[in-house]
Design a protein around this nucleic acid. Structure first.
Length: 255
DNA sequence: CACGCCACCTGTGAGC
DNA sequence: TGCTCACAGGTGGCGT
């Protein structure tokens, strides 16, 4: 294990390298956008990729680290896993199994969107009386965990809901429809290998290709795939800024 | 407490 | 060609 910086977004924990040294990996899973690497000895390596972070798996030792290779995990078969993150919005921490649910980055997280327990009724309850926009609400990891800016626009488009709609009004059938849309968008994106912006790659180095299926994201001015309307009249897909983030939507289809 | 906004950091691409 | 500037996938923290 090579630790090439003392911090990522946050300081790495004291004794970080020593606490990883020689630990066998028991399993890897995740909660929301956090990767959980469970290690022998009651230690979980908690990782978040931020916006630009990548885990790159390679054979053999890392002879010459590349720019922004911050953490290099060496495996006992002679291979390695590099955490590379140009923007350094990613983070890592170590936590015990019992401490995970109480960890400050984990404890407030909302339900997993792909969990069968995440239903329209559950979302409706969590949105009840929320004054903020539905776009901001589904991006809020405390409301539902794991939806990012691209999939928020895509899910609202599929559900036919305006991103500007007050979150508290998404109740009953609207909440059911939104939950179905969120599940469908995420499942399809996972099956397609994720979305690529610029140089995003999967662990095998291939580009994700869900971006080719975006209906609205980065399609400003283009025809809405669900409308028959004349683009010369409607202007097609629109882009606006909400909370400093881009939102793409069809004002005719989404209400 | 709920909400809106900014900062964090670097790379990229557009515009001049 | 080379410079400057706006913007980018996330989220913690602060002010209101």
């Amino acid at each position: 294990m090579q630790q090439r910086r003392k911090d990522l977004r946050f300081p790495l924990p004291r004794g970080f390298a020593a606490r990883l040294q020689g630990r066998r990996v028991l399993k890897v899973d995740r909660r929301a956008k956090y990767i959980l690497i469970h290690l022998e000895g009651d230690e979980i390596l908690l990782c978040h990729l931020g916006m630009s972070g990548r885990m790159l798996i390679g054979n053999g030792p890392v002879l010459e680290p590349e720019a922004h290779d911050h953490i290099i995990l060496e495996t006992d078969d002679g291979g390695h896993v590099r955490f590379n993150d140009a923007r350094r919005f990613g983070m890592m921490d170590l936590v015990s199994e019992a401490g995970l649910a109480r960890h400050k980055l984990i404890k407030g997280l909302g339900p997993e969107p792909l969990d069968p327990a995440f239903t329209g009724a559950v979302l409706a309850t969590r949105l009840d009386r929320k004054a903020t926009s539905i776009k901001a609400a589904i991006l809020d990891q405390r409301v539902v965990a794991g939806i990012g800016n691209i999939y928020a626009s895509e899910a609202l488009f599929r559900a036919g809901l305006s991103p500007k709609r007050k979150a508290g009004t998404v109740q009953g059938p609207r909440a059911e429809k939104l939950v179905a849309a969120i599940k469908a968008v995420l499942a399809e994106a996972i099956a397609a290998g994720g979305s690529s912006l610029r140089d995003y790659v999967q662990t095998d180095g291939e580009l994700g290709y869900f971006q080719h299926r975006w209906a609205v994201y980065e399609h400003e001015g283009e025809a809405c795939p669900a409308c028959e309307c004349d683009i010369a009249v409607t202007g097609g897909i629109r882009r606006m800024t909400q909370g400093g983030r881009s939102t793409f939507y069809c004002p005719r289809r989404q209400r």
